[in-house]
Computed example of a mutant assay.
Amino acid sequence: MPYDSRTKLEPNVYLSNGIGTTIGLNCRINENVFIQQATIEDEVLIAPNVAILCLPHKHDRVDIPIIEQGDEELQPPMIKRGAWLGRNVVVMPGVTIGEGAIVGAGAVVTKNVEPFTIVGGVPAKFIKKR
Protein backbone atom coordinates (compact mmCIF):
# COMPACT_ATOMS: atom_id res chain seq x y z
CA MET A 1 0.00 0.00 0.00
CA PRO A 2 1.60 3.31 -1.03
CA TYR A 3 2.04 5.93 1.64
CA ASP A 4 -0.38 8.86 1.39
CA SER A 5 -0.34 11.57 4.06
CA ARG A 6 -3.95 12.46 3.13
CA THR A 7 -5.24 9.07 4.29
CA LYS A 8 -6.34 9.39 7.92
CA LEU A 9 -7.11 6.58 10.36
CA GLU A 10 -8.58 7.77 13.64
CA PRO A 11 -8.03 6.03 17.02
CA ASN A 12 -9.29 2.49 17.57
CA VAL A 13 -9.45 1.41 13.93
CA TYR A 14 -9.14 -2.38 14.16
CA LEU A 15 -7.83 -4.33 11.16
CA SER A 16 -8.58 -7.94 12.08
CA ASN A 17 -5.28 -9.41 10.96
CA GLY A 18 -4.43 -6.92 8.22
CA ILE A 19 -3.69 -9.64 5.67
CA GLY A 20 -5.53 -8.99 2.42
CA THR A 21 -6.87 -5.58 3.41
CA THR A 22 -5.97 -2.66 1.17
CA ILE A 23 -6.76 1.00 1.80
CA GLY A 24 -6.52 3.47 -1.06
CA LEU A 25 -5.29 7.04 -1.25
CA ASN A 26 -6.96 10.02 0.43
CA CYS A 27 -9.33 7.94 2.62
CA ARG A 28 -10.82 8.90 5.99
CA ILE A 29 -11.54 6.09 8.44
CA ASN A 30 -13.01 7.35 11.70
CA GLU A 31 -12.77 5.96 15.22
CA ASN A 32 -13.97 2.54 16.36
CA VAL A 33 -14.10 1.02 12.87
CA PHE A 34 -13.71 -2.77 12.60
CA ILE A 35 -12.43 -4.21 9.30
CA GLN A 36 -12.13 -7.99 9.09
CA GLN A 37 -10.81 -7.85 5.53
CA ALA A 38 -11.70 -5.61 2.58
CA THR A 39 -10.53 -3.70 -0.44
CA ILE A 40 -11.08 0.01 0.14
CA GLU A 41 -10.40 2.15 -2.91
CA ASP A 42 -9.34 5.82 -3.06
CA GLU A 43 -11.24 8.73 -1.48
CA VAL A 44 -13.55 6.60 0.66
CA LEU A 45 -15.18 8.05 3.79
CA ILE A 46 -15.95 5.69 6.67
CA ALA A 47 -17.77 7.18 9.67
CA PRO A 48 -17.37 6.02 13.30
CA ASN A 49 -18.44 2.58 14.51
CA VAL A 50 -18.61 0.92 11.07
CA ALA A 51 -18.08 -2.85 10.80
CA ILE A 52 -16.88 -4.41 7.53
CA LEU A 53 -17.15 -8.19 7.71
CA CYS A 54 -15.72 -10.93 5.48
CA LEU A 55 -16.11 -14.25 7.27
CA PRO A 56 -19.55 -15.75 7.87
CA HIS A 57 -19.95 -18.49 10.46
CA LYS A 58 -21.29 -21.88 9.45
CA HIS A 59 -24.59 -22.55 11.22
CA ASP A 60 -26.34 -25.32 9.29
CA ARG A 61 -26.09 -28.04 11.94
CA VAL A 62 -28.26 -27.95 15.04
CA ASP A 63 -26.56 -30.87 16.80
CA ILE A 64 -23.37 -28.92 17.59
CA PRO A 65 -22.85 -25.33 18.78
CA ILE A 66 -22.32 -22.68 16.09
CA ILE A 67 -18.95 -21.79 17.60
CA GLU A 68 -17.72 -25.33 16.79
CA GLN A 69 -18.97 -25.37 13.16
CA GLY A 70 -16.19 -23.21 11.75
CA ASP A 71 -16.31 -20.49 9.15
CA GLU A 72 -17.41 -20.21 5.53
CA GLU A 73 -14.97 -19.10 2.80
CA LEU A 74 -13.54 -15.59 3.01
CA GLN A 75 -15.75 -13.09 1.19
CA PRO A 76 -13.98 -9.71 1.48
CA PRO A 77 -16.20 -6.72 0.64
CA MET A 78 -15.10 -4.07 -1.84
CA ILE A 79 -15.69 -0.38 -1.14
CA LYS A 80 -15.29 1.48 -4.44
CA ARG A 81 -13.78 4.90 -5.04
CA GLY A 82 -15.51 7.86 -3.42
CA ALA A 83 -18.08 5.86 -1.44
CA TRP A 84 -19.28 7.06 1.97
CA LEU A 85 -20.33 4.73 4.78
CA GLY A 86 -22.32 6.54 7.48
CA ARG A 87 -22.08 6.05 11.23
CA ASN A 88 -22.81 2.54 12.59
CA VAL A 89 -23.06 0.89 9.15
CA VAL A 90 -22.50 -2.87 8.89
CA VAL A 91 -21.22 -4.24 5.57
CA MET A 92 -21.78 -7.98 5.28
CA PRO A 93 -19.35 -10.42 3.61
CA GLY A 94 -19.01 -10.34 -0.17
CA VAL A 95 -20.79 -7.01 -0.68
CA THR A 96 -19.57 -4.38 -3.14
CA ILE A 97 -20.35 -0.74 -2.40
CA GLY A 98 -20.29 1.00 -5.78
CA GLU A 99 -18.32 4.08 -6.76
CA GLY A 100 -19.68 7.26 -5.20
CA ALA A 101 -22.42 5.39 -3.31
CA ILE A 102 -23.68 6.60 0.07
CA VAL A 103 -24.79 4.21 2.81
CA GLY A 104 -26.97 5.94 5.42
CA ALA A 105 -26.23 5.77 9.13
CA GLY A 106 -27.20 2.53 10.84
CA ALA A 107 -27.74 0.56 7.62
CA VAL A 108 -26.94 -3.14 7.32
CA VAL A 109 -25.74 -3.80 3.76
CA THR A 110 -26.52 -7.36 2.68
CA LYS A 111 -26.49 -6.83 -1.13
CA ASN A 112 -24.34 -4.93 -3.60
CA VAL A 113 -24.94 -1.18 -3.87
CA GLU A 114 -24.93 0.32 -7.36
CA PRO A 115 -22.60 3.24 -8.16
CA PHE A 116 -23.84 6.73 -7.19
CA THR A 117 -26.79 5.28 -5.26
CA ILE A 118 -27.97 6.17 -1.76
CA VAL A 119 -29.21 3.30 0.41
CA GLY A 120 -30.34 3.04 4.01
CA GLY A 121 -32.18 0.88 6.52
CA VAL A 122 -32.05 -2.69 7.80
CA PRO A 123 -31.52 -4.33 5.45
CA ALA A 124 -30.25 -1.48 3.28
CA LYS A 125 -32.62 -0.53 0.47
CA PHE A 126 -32.49 1.90 -2.44
CA ILE A 127 -33.40 5.49 -1.55
CA LYS A 128 -32.34 7.43 -4.65
CA LYS A 129 -29.63 8.02 -7.23
CA ARG A 130 -27.25 10.90 -6.72
Rank of each mutant, 00 (worst) to 15 (best):
residue 1 M to K: 13
residue 5 S to Q: 08
residue 9 L to N: 06
residue 11 P to H: 00
residue 13 V to R: 01
residue 13 V to K: 00
residue 15 L to G: 09
residue 16 S to K: 15
residue 16 S to M: 14
residue 19 I to M: 13
residue 21 T to W: 07
residue 21 T to N: 06
residue 23 I to G: 06
residue 24 G to A: 12
residue 25 L to M: 15
residue 25 L to S: 15
residue 28 R to C: 14
residue 29 I to E: 05
residue 30 N to A: 15
residue 30 N to F: 15
residue 31 E to L: 14
residue 33 V to H: 08
residue 37 Q to S: 10
residue 37 Q to T: 10
residue 38 A to W: 04
residue 39 T to C: 09
residue 39 T to L: 12
residue 40 I to S: 01
residue 42 D to P: 01
residue 43 E to V: 07
residue 45 L to D: 10
residue 46 I to E: 07
residue 46 I to W: 10
residue 49 N to F: 14
residue 49 N to Q: 10
residue 49 N to M: 11
residue 50 V to Y: 04
residue 50 V to C: 09
residue 51 A to M: 14
residue 52 I to Q: 09
residue 54 C to M: 14
residue 54 C to A: 15
residue 56 P to L: 04
residue 57 H to I: 10
residue 57 H to P: 11
residue 58 K to R: 14
residue 58 K to H: 12
residue 58 K to I: 11
residue 59 H to Y: 15
residue 60 D to H: 15
residue 60 D to K: 15
residue 62 V to G: 15
residue 64 I to A: 12
residue 64 I to Y: 10
residue 68 E to P: 07
residue 68 E to D: 13
residue 70 G to V: 02
residue 73 E to C: 10
residue 73 E to Y: 12
residue 76 P to C: 09
residue 77 P to T: 06
residue 81 R to P: 06
residue 81 R to T: 13
residue 81 R to M: 11
residue 82 G to N: 05
residue 82 G to T: 08
residue 84 W to V: 04
residue 86 G to L: 04
residue 86 G to W: 05
residue 87 R to V: 12
residue 88 N to D: 11
residue 89 V to M: 04
residue 91 V to S: 00
residue 92 M to H: 02
residue 93 P to K: 01
residue 94 G to F: 01
residue 94 G to M: 02
residue 98 G to N: 03
residue 99 E to V: 03
residue 100 G to P: 04
residue 101 A to Q: 03
residue 102 I to T: 13
residue 102 I to W: 06
residue 103 V to D: 09
residue 106 G to E: 05
residue 107 A to R: 00
residue 108 V to G: 06
residue 111 K to N: 08
residue 112 N to Q: 04
residue 113 V to Q: 01
residue 114 E to K: 06
residue 115 P to T: 02
residue 117 T to E: 01
residue 117 T to I: 04
residue 118 I to P: 09
residue 118 I to C: 10
residue 119 V to R: 02
residue 120 G to L: 07
residue 121 G to V: 09
residue 121 G to T: 10
residue 123 P to Y: 03
residue 125 K to Y: 07
residue 126 F to M: 03
residue 126 F to E: 03
residue 129 K to Y: 07
